[in-house]
Write a protein that binds this DNA or RNA. Structure first.
Length: 946
RNA sequence: CCCCAGAUAGCUCAUCUGGUAGAGCACACGCCUGAUAAGCGUGAGGUGGCUGGAUCAUGACCAGCUCUGGGGACCA
């Protein structure tokens, strides 16, 4: 028997079936770095319209987690798909470098700035620490296959950047948005600094709640306000009872707030308390909100009590009490924040330590006392408690109150309480001088609200989200009392607190210095050098800026600064938490400086959760580490996972999902490989067949790719990568794998090499793989580049500046076999497969080429199927296929179609494996069919349709 | 406590404006051995989170609830 295998055009390629991504991707990266691929892309995209995706800087601390990976990959997919769509899309990654977290790490290593280490040394150490963190993160980001200007990223600690932050602040001052305020802000006593709202997190805390008696200065005056409910106003000492969960604020107690809306009751009772006899005074009278009497008495465990008088809240305004243990007047104030949800309806008011307290007190001309130092210790002017820490003073305060007979009740109280996000310690409110960007002083809130509408928010609910936040947010406190941050660089008058009249010029002078020497320049500068004789009247503000300000002004420090970038950016793309972070800080500074938002589109993605939908946390142990995935499966798998999930809500990651993704990847890769293998020997320069000369089936395949590509363009354009990947997969697995490729194997392998039948097919394969490789590129970049040089005729060394393949073409309107006809044929094929399968189950046949089919068709189907003439068998992959009009065979799910399958009784052609009647027609080839003889010895068979 | 989003086959997702749920993957079984740590075929998988309601009819509309994620408020 002759070995005819050598006469076949079998697939051949050096492109490996298995990607070995974990091993091969690093090699590709090294290669790309060597030829400076990113700059090559820039060079090749020069002159195209720009698309600017501006990178939101990750904080320069810690290893990258899966959230970082999702964010960077999505950005990279956007960048690459925009490049594919014909844009010049540069990407300058950046890092956020200043701020508390880094300071904490450095403190742990070398000690507190100013105490153990000089400030300048400390700042230098922070700089070095951040730089090291950046190197680590950068390495991992690059490994993800994210393209960008990694050799020259932006760092918020670059001297130039630091200087531009100062210039940005200066513009905001010029535009009248800055103001100095003095009010209670969240204060981290451990961190020793004010915190922004965004830095506050709520945790459960068990506090000591106390009920405290305040005595009226003039008992009869107070009683005169009450209308007796019975015969008299009862007996016993009179006091007003407040309830608080922060005993440590009692030293700063300056007033009691009551509500104008409420009635207050005078209650007579005897709180002889079993727990601690010190709390009870015997028979006494207290003032409580009338509607809370039952609740309070029940809390005190008192059953026997009597409401003896009632008074309106308003009538009690300005009544004076005395501090429980100090000679201090405590007036009653009317405040809208007083509610009956908890407590007594009388609210202890310490303007130093509460926002409402501050506001109410200011209305009555009561100032703050400033008893608590930055480190949380009571100052010298604090009677009884000077030198003690606020965290430790609750108990001593209670002791003192009990001793003075002022404590009615003491309990443990569990509630949610603000904590410092870094140190995880409870926060206090502390009144301090701070600098604010005012939301309303110069219309910032108003312009923000209106310009939000000019931005495209993806998904659209992002707009409502940020509107809600901007609408209700307080002024932005931008000052921090920290070391590692950009200084505010303001000079204020010693007496008047006014800014220096030449503030903006001075800030520019400082900026120039900072450009040379970094932020340390401000701290080193001698005022005499800066303002000469004025130096004696002015002091430097030593506060640093909130880090959110740093990243908020990247539109100035990066977009405006770098020639290849443009402000406003086309897109900002971050996690949905940035509505209150970067999106907002950028919006506010953009408006305060330029009068417009720094972005046109804002795309947000959700957070990564585990298989059960739970958020990932180290303590739960359900984290998926990106580098683990990459080292096991490869970056292209991770990228495909990101692209194939709906990023708008939570993004689920689990071993199963990633393994499924790897399955999908293999299918895509292997389909592409099959294209390459069948293009073996094909030279597009000489072998490409004109569209009109191609076989209808091949035309159909190109048309199918053409349609798919249009869908992909739309999907990429809409940032709908999920749809894009699904369509790619469907095309590869279904349209190609189970239909077209399966069918053309026969022709591809057995037709005479170089014949029209063969070249038509290869032409289709060529066009389609050129398209596919580009479809893959934004998502599976490593694989796309690996495929690229294996495609015949591709001499360019990189795919990464290619645009959509324009060599695809739709089917002719008057095609011999229309799209509809192909669709019908494909459905018929499925029915035929069913019948073949049932025969196979009975053991009648194995391969479908062992079968012969007869199709019984109605008029319509007949005219469709008979178009293929005797080539229908190739489409059905059977050895014989005939169509007859009328009924017959097994019924199918298609109306008017019957199918009859039988095992062929003919011999099998050794070469093409079809079973035909003409095996051995040529005595030179006794084992071949006539068709194969023609292909081996003749000029090659002629195909008309498939 | 309030607001937003999501809840459809083991997994990823469809199901446009209501008319007895669809793909692909995974799985099972089989075929092939000329894509071979591949390929093809067939098949089995869903009380569409729960409960009510409107409708001739709904997974899709309304109300309430549960779970998950996100955000906000309160937290004196």
């Amino acid at each position: 028997m002759t070995d005819y295998k050598s006469t076949l055009n079998l697939p051949l390629t050096s492109f490996p079936m298995r990607g070995n991504l974990a091993q091969n991707e690093p090699k590709a990266l090294a290669n790309w770095a060597k030829k400076d691929l990113y700059q090559l892309i820039r060079k090749n995209c020069a002159g195209r319209p720009k698309f600017i995706l501006h990178d939101g800087p990750p904080y320069a601390n810690g290893d990258i987690h899966i959230g970082h990976a999702v964010n960077k990959i999505l950005k990279d997919v956007v960048i690459k798909s925009k490049t594919l769509a014909g844009f010049d899309a540069p990407y300058v990654p950046g890092w956020d470098c200043h701020g508390l977290p880094i300071e904490h790490r450095v403190e742990k290593k070398i000690g507190k700035a100013g105490a153990k280490v000089p400030f300048d040394v400390f700042r230098q150490k922070c700089r070095e620490y951040a730089a090291k963190q950046i190197e680590g993160q950068k390495k991992d980001f690059i490994r993800l296959g994210v393209f960008g200007e990694w050799d020259n990223p932006y760092l918020s600690m670059d001297f130039q950047f630091e200087a531009d932050i100062i210039r940005s602040l200066s513009k905001i001052v010029q535009n009248g948005h800055l103001h100095k305020g003095f009010k209670p802000v969240y204060w981290s006593v451990v961190g020793g600094s004010a915190l922004a709202e965004a830095e506050v997190e709520y945790q459960d805390k068990v506090s000591t709640s106390i009920d405290v008696r305040y005595s009226p200065r003039d008992q009869s005056e107070l009683l005169s306000k009450f209308v007796p409910t019975g015969e008299d106003l009862g007996n016993g000492e009179v006091s007003l009872v407040i309830w608080t969960t922060t005993p440590w604020t009692i030293p700063a107690s300056q007033a009691i707030s009551i509500s104008a809306e409420l009635k207050y009751a005078l209650v007579e009772f005897d709180a002889q308390n079993e727990q601690d006899e010190r709390f009870g005074l015997g028979k006494e009278r207290v003032v409580l909100a009338a509607e809370m009497v039952n609740q309070v008495m029940s809390r005190y465990g008192v059953e026997d009590y009597r409401v003896v008088g009632l008074a309106s809240g308003t009538s009690l305004e300005n009544i004076e009490c005395v501090h429980p243990y100090l000679e201090r007047k405590i007036p009653l104030l009317l405040g809208e924040h007083v509610t009956t949800e908890a407590g007594t309806g009388l609210v202890h008011t310490a303007p130093d330590h509460g926002a409402d307290d501050f506001t109410v007190s200011r209305g009555y001309g009561i100032e703050t006392l400033n008893l608590v130092n930055a480190n949380g210790v009571y100052s010298d002017k604090t009677e009884h408690f000077s030198g003690q820490h606020v965290y430790k003073v609750d108990e001593p305060v209670c002791e003192l109150l009990a001793e003075k007979g002022r404590l009615v009740r003491k309990e443990k109280f569990k509630h949610s309480f603000p904590h410092c996000w870094r140190t995880k310690t409870p926060l206090i409110f502390r009144a301090t001088p701070q600098w604010f960007i005012s939301m309303d002083k110069n219309g910032l809130r108003e312009s923000a609200m209106s310009s939000i509408k000019d931005v495209r928010w993806i998904p659209d609910w992002g707009q409502a989200r940020i509107e809600g936040m901007v609408e209700g947010r307080p002024d932005w406190c931008i000052s921090r009392q920290r070391t590692w941050g950009v200084p505010l660089c303001l000079l204020v008058h010693k007496d008047t607190d006014e800014l220096h009249p030449n503030t903006n010029e001075l800030m520019e002078k400082v900026a120039i210095l900072v450009e040379e020497k970094g932020i340390q320049a401000w701290f080193d500068i001698d005022l005499n050098d800066l303002i000469g004789a004025d130096a004696k009247d002015y002091v430097k503000v030593n506060d640093t800026l909130d880090v959110w300000f740093d990243s908020g002004v990247t539109h100035q420090c990066v977009l405006e600064r770098r020639g290849e970038l443009v402000e406003p950016a086309d897109m900002y793309l971050e996690g949905s938490d940035q509505h209150r972070g970067w999106f907002q800080s950028s919006l506010l500074t953009g408006l305060a400086i330029n009068g417009h938002p720094p972005y046109k589109e804002v795309l947000t993605h959700g957070f990564v959760v585990d298989a059960k939908g739970q958020k990932m946390s180290k303590s739960v142990g359900n984290v998926v580490a990106p580098m683990t995935v990459i080292n096991k499966l490869g970056a292209d798998i991770l990228r495909l996972w990101v692209a194939s999930t709906d990023y708008r809500s939570e993004i689920t990651a689990s071993d199963e999902i990633l393994n499924r993704t790897a399955d999908t990847y293999r299918r895509l890769r292997n389909t592409a490989r099959f294209f390459l293998a069948n293009l073996n020997g094909f030279n597009p320069e000489t072998d490409l067949v004109a569209a009109e000369d191609m076989l209808p089936l091949d035309r159909w395949a190109v048309d199918c790719a053409y349609k798919t590509q249009n869908e992909l363009k739309a999907a990429y354009d809409d940032y709908n990568f999920l749809v894009a990947t699904q369509k790619m997969h469907h095309f590869c697995a279904m349209d190609m794998g189970s239909f077209y490729l399966d069918i053309i194997k026969d022709r591809q392998y057995t037709a005479k090499a170089g014949s029209a039948a063969h070249k038509s097919c290869q032409t289709a394969l060529y066009h389609i793989i050129q398209a596919i490789v580009r479809w893959f590129m934004p998502v599976m970049s490593f694989t796309a580049q690996e495929l690229w040089p294996n495609i015949p005729g591709n001499n360019e060394d990189s795919i990464f500046w290619e645009t959509w393949y324009d060599g695809l073409f739709p089917n002719d309107v008057d095609a011999k076999i229309s799209d509809n006809a192909w669709q019908t044929i494909s459905k018929v094929k499925i029915e035929v497969n069913r019948q073949i399968e049932s025969m196979r189950k009975e053991g009648g046949i194995g391969s479908s080429l062992e079968a012969e089919v007869v199709l019984f068709a109605n008029e319509e189907l007949y005219s469709c199927l008979s178009k293929l003439e005797n080539e229908l068998r190739f489409v059905l992959i059977t050895s014989k296929a005939t169509v007859r009009k009328g009924d017959g065979g097994s019924t199918t799910e298609i109306d008017g179609l019957g199918v009859e399958v039988s095992a062929s009784e003919n011999k099998k052609c050794e070469r093409c494996w079809h079973r035909t009647e003409d095996i051995g027609v040529d005595s030179n080839h006794p084992d071949l069919c006539g068709r194969c003889v023609e292909n081996v010895d003749g000029s090659g068979e002629v195909r008309h349709y498939a």
